[in-house]
Nucleic acid binder design. Structure first.
Lengths: 337, 337
DNA sequence: TTGAAAGCGCTAACAT
DNA sequence: ATGTTAGCGCTTTCAA
């Protein structure tokens, strides 16, 4: 517990306990056979010195690193913290530790983050999305460790992917909307070049509408700011411009919730006169005056399975090198008639 | 770009470029003098091989690690992602990289996370809160690197702290409520033993009320679930039990928002018949029918300053070993008369 | 401007 | 059950 500037080493513990460095190392890692007496002496010495092992040296010597890199676009999206939570929970008792990196939806930043992560030689990598720069793809392909791409399955996969088809999610929502008899449909979403999943949902959505001879009648995009407030503003603007719309499809639940609050305030009959839907099925909605129709992105399950694959604890029959396509679940809530 | 199992080393690049390992190392780190011709040859070789430096070896040799450990209680709290964002932004151009660890508000888990982090010999540590186990406190005290405790300043500090006084925040809110003439006050919060800041706010709140001879008339606590929904339920329960309350103080904005929505639906006159207030000043509120009174926890500023201190770029006159107490700002919104 | 040698703190592999 | 030796892949330091 004495304060020192030079960090303590195994050698210090070795000297303090009168045992070889190797034996100290064994005790500290619970490896091999060590007599209880020796064990206790070592532990006492380590504790009273305040020794913290140097994993850098350990990793270099053993060629093993208990880190798993997790690369996501954003922390403010509300979706990713939940994926992280699921990943953390699974890794908790595997001896692996997640390390998070954030890309801000920028491919070039993603490339940097991947490079940085790989330079620490992690045991595995979990990366959100399938779209990467060529260089990033090359690095991931040659990483020599499990690489799991999560969230999305619509596109070429490097090694293993766990996610949903966002095109299909968009299609399913379109079909539900059409089946409910809505025809004059508006779309409200983010203007974010890097958000490929939102783009794919919109594409799937439009293509299913097109199959029924229906077109999206109005669109509105936003960037930045409070999603709830933006949802309000965008909805007000769109309804002012296109008052005869009978359905509004939002690219996420937060702006959808803003739209819902606006419509309710305006006294618009939901879901009779107009229907609404979002995406993600976030808990948040539980407390709103009405439950917004939405679609579950399976983010807990995605986190769980991705972590299990990286940890080598593959859920039922999955062994890596595969695509695990989860099924998005439609939650009709109260805003589709 | 050839695929290999054994990760590439400096030696591979050295052989491919016909230059010594040392020179390759210099090129890759932009250190020392290297002729442009050599430089280019090395860069070409590294790129075409797909070489990724091994930071583990580099860190061991140089005794320098560009990692900053950031330890927070939770990712789902909405507050911490913002602090992380601010930290990331500041570290972005310092060559330092944040590594996040989550404690789940459990002191014992925090101890483990600190130990793990320190075993990677980071350049600094940012830890949320002032309450730690004795062992954790000892580790932090002997870490030999900058340790910044954030969010809170009410208590003993290990090295440097950046935060607000939550006791004072609670007191300020009580004073504002009393000044507005409310007297029959209820409190709604989390039942979380590890959330010391919420506890301190409540203590400050009650003590300021007590100074005016006022007592909290009813209390309700929750755990888990959607905060918005819980805010609703708790509010409904409390008003059923104590119908004559004229103010509800919530320990965070999310449950406050749930309560607000409930009250509005019930047709309760806000802020006339009853006032409401939360804590955190989250953006979310912008889109609600009324803006909830709240208090800014200065989380961006906290993240910024903490990162600057760890990075050695101390903002105006702060040099570490100090307590930076930021001033919480009351945002009266529309729910205090 | 470039290279050679030594060693960072630990662990694998092999003694004893 | 414990100790010894030889690296892990880099960077520091010194030499050329």
């Amino acid at each position: 517990m004495a304060d020192q500037r030079r960090p303590l080493t195994l050698r210090d513990v070795s000297e303090a306990s009168g045992v070889s460095e190797m034996t100290v190392s064994r005790v500290l890692r619970n490896r091999g056979d060590v007599s209880p007496a020796t064990r206790e002496r070592v532990l006492d010495a380590a504790k009273s010195l305040g020794y913290v092992p140097n994993k850098i040296a350990g990793a270099l010597a053993s060629q093993r690193v208990n880190l798993v890199g997790v690369i996501i676009p954003s922390l403010s999206n509300m979706v990713f913290p939940e994926v992280l939570e699921a990943i953390s929970a699974v890794l908790e008792d595997t001896g692996l530790q997640p390390v998070f990196g954030v890309t801000g939806y920028r491919a070039e930043k993603e490339e940097t983050v991947i490079y940085e992560m790989l330079s620490w030689r992690p045991s595995g990598l979990i990366v959100a999305g399938l779209e990467h720069s060529d260089a990033a793809r090359a690095m991931l392909g040659n990483a020599g460790v499990p690489v799991v791409e999560i969230m999305d399955v619509d596109g070429p996969v490097i090694d293993t992917a766990v996610g949903i088809s966002h095109a299909r999610a968009g299609r399913m929502m379109a079909e539900a909307i059409l089946a409910a008899g809505y025809r004059r449909i508006g779309f409200l979403g983010t203007r974010m070049a890097g958000d490929h999943r939102a783009r794919k949902r919109l594409e799937g959505f439009r293509s299913a509408l097109a199959d029924a001879g229906v077109e999206v009648q109005d669109k509105e995009f936003y960037e930045g700011g409070s999603s709830l407030a933006k949802g309000r503003e965008m909805t007000a603007a769109m309804l002012a411009r296109s008052p005869d719309l009978d359905f509004l499809y939002y690219s996420n639940d937060m702006i959808g919730a803003g739209g819902l609050l606006y419509c309710l305030e305006q006294g618009i009959d939901i879901p009779g006169r107009m229907g609404l839907a979002g995406f993600n099925d976030v808990d948040l909605l539980d407390g709103l005056p009405m439950r917004l129709a939405t679609m579950d992105a399976c983010r807990f399950e995605i986190g769980r399975q991705a972590a299990a694959i990286v940890a080598g604890r593959h859920p039922e029959g999955i062994i890596g090198g595969e695509i695990v396509a989860l099924t998005p679940r439609l939650n009709p809530g109260d805003t589709i008639r």
